[in-house]
Design a protein around this nucleic acid. Sequence first.
RNA 1: CGGGGUGUAGCGCAGCUUGGUUAGCGCGCCUGCUUUGGGAGCAGGAGGUCGCAGGUUCGAAUCCUGCCACCCCGACCA
Length: 491
Amino acid sequence: MAKNFTTRKDDYAKWYNELVIKADLAENSPVRGCMIIKPYGYAIWENMQYALDKKFKKTGHRNVYFPIFIPKSFFSKEASHVEGFAKECAVVTHYRLKNDENGEGIVVDESAKLEEELVVRPTSETIIWDTYRNWIQSYRDLPLLLNQWANVVRWEMRTRLFLRTAEFLWQEGHTAHATKEEALEETAKMLDVYADFAEHYMAMPVWKGRKSESERFAGAVDTYCIEAMMQDGKSLQAGTSHFLGQNFAKAFDVKFLDKQNQQQYVWASSWGVSTRLMGALIMAHSDDNGLVLPPKLAPDQVVIVPIYRKEEDFEKVNQKALEIKEELEEKDIRVQYDNRDTHKPGWKFSEYEFKGVPVRIAIGPKDLEKGTVEVARRDTLEKSFYQATDIGAKISHLLDNIQQNLYNKAMDFREERTSTADSWEEFKDILKNRGGFILAHWDGTPETEEKIKQATKASIRLIPFEGYDEPGKCVYTGNPSKGRVVFAKAY
RNA sequence: CGGGGUGUAGCGCAGCUUGGUUAGCGCGCCUGCUUUGGGAGCAGGAGGUCGCAGGUUCGAAUCCUGCCACCCCGACCA
């Protein structure tokens, strides 16, 4: 049991904050709103990156890198895009510092003012589409399927580690296509990639759908998203994929000659996931004993702790532990053998439990006599003894089992906390007493959406692609509705 | 930017109301011995511009003024 650790029931927000700090994932930086991602947290992010990057490559994308600075004038070219991001942009205005003449230390050198101010990218559509103009002339240049891993800055008022920070890490895909159909297909395909990643790697079930007009990306024609339920019943947008139509092509004059020798504007998509996924991962599975990580993303899948009293015990235990480590590594299991004598076993147990290592193996003199090892799984906190023979296959199987169990648990939780509401009273009652997702009819107007949000703080998280399109009456106005949408309070 | 709160050792805090020896406590850290199957015990030790600046006073962590920083709750957002 972790010491001085807030429980979820006690204060969910505090539980999250403490978990991030105490599990050594990240900490606040000297710069307000920015975070320092620590080695353990970064290792998880690297595992996410690696898995996603493979999927991007497999679907035909290649990586590029565009500058962090964007000329201010680029931003004004797509009207709704500027409007969406203008309020949260950091701007570089000078390029030199100097010693203050009055001895007040280093100051900005006013004489070194930039001719054109540079915006620190909040997203890269503008600079990328300005460049695509030169890269695309013919239908033979299409499709152009590129992605970049980068940092972006959005000057947020209130921040929380991983969930919302002024600077965050992400990946942004930017694709160009000859036809609308192709661009739409790409938008849907990449959402599927995200959903697949969320479910199979993060062990986190997600809803797929489209955003309402008010939640749409600034500059997009349509925004698709995946939404996951956190353990407090709130929804977290885990990934977005945008159909940009010809908006950016027109703003940046990106045209190509088709087979009929006709000039046409290019069709576009963009899509991204960020370090926010770290927040999602933490809140999807962790418990009052600390972090719980799915084996596929855990930096260490197994930790081996040796138990001994005397030096001669250690030599024997150590030898066996090294054998087991090797057997596990042969099965491509990421394993850490912690034979430090600076910490006691009990301390190590607590430490790795708090850090969410999926499986712990303890080996002591008694195990050597019996030919066993003690195996503890983090997800259920169960301990059992395994015969040490063929340990690699057994643990490999156990890791698969844990991965699946985490998914099932998250899915059960989501199902249990998903309701349908057919009246306004019912809608309010569910939000107040149960929270979670509510499937309800909506008349399709931004006005109603806004009123519901004002009244309940719940917003439309997504409009499902399929399966919920039977007509009905809006839960708020009673006006005709084309189908149910998903309402929830959101991060 | 509105409302609330906090700045004292690496971290978490007490002390401030009612000014007065050398500023304390817990965790962590260092040394030694004993320990090691769920966060060890004992002994010794290191570590402080009390957020910053000014003022009141014989004397300020403590009282007064100004400033700064950070956190929480709102408005904005992936």
